[in-house]
């Protein structure tokens, strides 16, 4: 084999080795960054998942992609992606706290409004059940519908209150929203006035 060809082959081999060495050097930091990102994410995940499930899912997805890059030996890519995940994880704590404040504030109004609405509906349904004849615009079928609706919102409100006491704020808030919507529907059926706070 000519010397020139041997020398070029040696140069190519040296170059490939140096690339491999660089890759091996990048592997350690990438592995450490992935571990740190996973730990940061796991630290606050359980609590944050109840409040901001979409953001937590996005961070988990980003971690999965960072790991895939590592598996493909793209250590620079994995390092960059893991750093981004760690940043996301840091932001989750603050975002969860903000959401918690928002839900708690919203709950306070619902906790006043919804028992009032349920009480007013119950009172009206009880009276109409004693009536010899129903008012204009209301028939027996609609009244029965209002009674079933009342039972449903009473049950759901109890569940919402229990969820709030357990700290499941997102669940409590969603249930309260459903109660409000159904209560407005029932009040409209019965020809009742809707409280101002229920119109928003």
């Amino acid at each position: 084999m000519p010397v020139k060809k041997i020398l070029s082959l040696a140069l190519v081999a040296l170059f490939a080795l140096s690339l491999g060495a660089c890759g091996d050097k990048a592997k350690g930091p990438a592995e450490a960054a992935l571990k740190a990102a996973e730990e940061a994410l796991n630290a606050g995940k359980a609590e944050a998942a109840k409040l901001i499930p979409d953001q937590v899912a996005a961070a988990e997805d980003a971690l999965k992609q960072a790991k895939e890059l590592f598996q493909k030996k793209d250590y620079a890519g994995a390092l960059s992606a893991a750093t981004a995940v760690a940043d996301k994880a840091k932001g989750l704590g603050a975002a969860a706290m903000a959401k918690k404040d928002e839900l708690t504030k919203g709950w306070e109004e619902q906790a006043k409004l919804l028992p009032n609405m349920i009480g007013a509906i119950k009172s009206r349904v009880d009276i109409l059940s004693k009536s010899k004849k129903l008012p204009e615009g209301l028939d027996a079928a609609k009244l029965d519908g209002a009674k079933s609706g009342l039972a449903e919102i009473t049950k759901t409100w109890d569940e919402a209150s229990a969820a709030f006491k357990e700290g499941a704020l997102a669940d409590a808030s969603a249930k309260a929203k459903a109660v409000k919507k159904k209560a407005v529907e029932i009040m409209n059926t019965l020809g009742m006035q809707i409280p101002a706070a229920a119109k928003s």
């Binding site: 109004e109 009032n116 009276i127 109409l128």
Partner: peptide, 30 residues
């Protein structure tokens, strides 16, 4: 209070409690 669900009626000319009961309950005897 915006959370108040009390139902109100403003008395109109010619109304009695029986007529108001008939309007809301369908039954003046209530």
């Amino acid at each position: 209070d915006p959370t108040d669900a009390t139902q109100w009626h403003v008395v109109q000319k010619g109304e009695t409690l029986s007529k108001i009961a008939a309007k809301y309950y369908g039954d003046p005897s209530l």
